[in-house]
């Protein structure tokens, strides 16, 4: 009699226990069971989910256009390209080169004796106004520590990464001739550059990149004589770059 009663009570309690077990799982997709089996959610999902692309062991080719700013004498428009190999997801090595077209900066001013001040011509600036860059090459080490998503008005999201670059640079520029001889000669200078960039990722093999760079180099200045020798000044040339990146191979394996 008592045994029957115990069995009946046990049978009666079973559905209750099942119902109580199922309640949380029904509400949240059985997170407790998954967490118990394969670990907590935070260990299974990377901090930023859904990388739309990975860079490790891929090449990146990017035609770029650069515009100089904060120019006292010459404004530079640089057409170039950057080739980067990404050793890991965050580290890469980039080789860049560019040819610069120059124009007279809006800030340049000449005030000839007895005349009103005006904007100088290219011929008047040539050899006297520093910053007449023709070629820029650089070998940059790239570190991209930050990958993220941006919520755009709660409707969509954009993937991006942020990177820093630094490395040696070689610059060809128009240097003044010695002994106050008018005109200029081509000269090379070795310097360095550092910058900050951002890639907005379109898909698995293409991205739009923006960069701010400071190219630092030593430039020969006008006024050198045979007795005093050449004089130099350190110049900071700021560039804003925009480029379109293509990644090779154009696919990658996740995980």
């Amino acid at each position: 009699m008592n045994a029957r009663l115990v069995v009946l009570v046990a049978l009666a309690l079973a559905p209750v226990a099942r119902a109580q077990d199922l309640t949380p799982s029904t509400e949240a997709g059985d997170t407790a069971a998954v967490d118990r089996d394969i670990g907590p959610l935070k260990d299974r999902v990377p901090p930023v989910t859904g990388y739309t692309f990975l860079m490790a062991r891929r090449f990146e080719i990017a035609p770029t256009f650069s515009l100089s700013f904060r120019d006292a004498f010459w404004t530079k428009y640089v057409v170039g390209a950057t080739a980067t190999y990404h050793f890991t997801e965050t580290l890469g090595l980039a080789l860049r080169g560019g040819f610069a077209f120059t124009s007279v900066s809006g800030a340049a001013q000449i005030c000839p004796a007895g005349e009103a001040c005006r904007s100088p011509t290219k011929e008047e600036l040539d050899g006297k106004g520093p910053g007449q860059i023709k070629l820029i090459t650089a070998l940059d080490f790239e570190w991209a520590p930050l990958y993220g998503k941006i919520s755009l008005l709660a409707e969509g999201f954009a993937h991006f990464n942020l990177y820093l670059i630094a490395g040696p640079a070689a610059i060809q520029y128009k240097a003044p001739k010695d002994a106050n001889v008018p005109g200029s000669d081509s000269a090379w200078a070795v310097g360095g550059e550092a910058g900050l960039g951002m890639r907005f990722i379109f898909n698995r093999w293409m991205a739009l990149r923006f960069e701010l760079r400071d190219v630092i180099y030593r430039e020969k200045t006008v006024g050198a004589t045979e007795t005093t020798g050449a004089s130099y000044q350190v110049r900071n040339q700021l560039f804003f770059d925009i480029g379109l990146s293509f990644f090779f191979p154009n696919s990658f394996t996740e995980g």
Partner: peptide
């Protein structure tokens, strides 16, 4: 501040807004 996002750095999350 219309833009809100998150990013990973050194395998940790940082939140930011623009």
């Amino acid at each position: 501040s219309p833009i809100y996002g998150k990013a990973t750095i050194f395998n940790s999350i940082i939140h930011f807004d623009g």
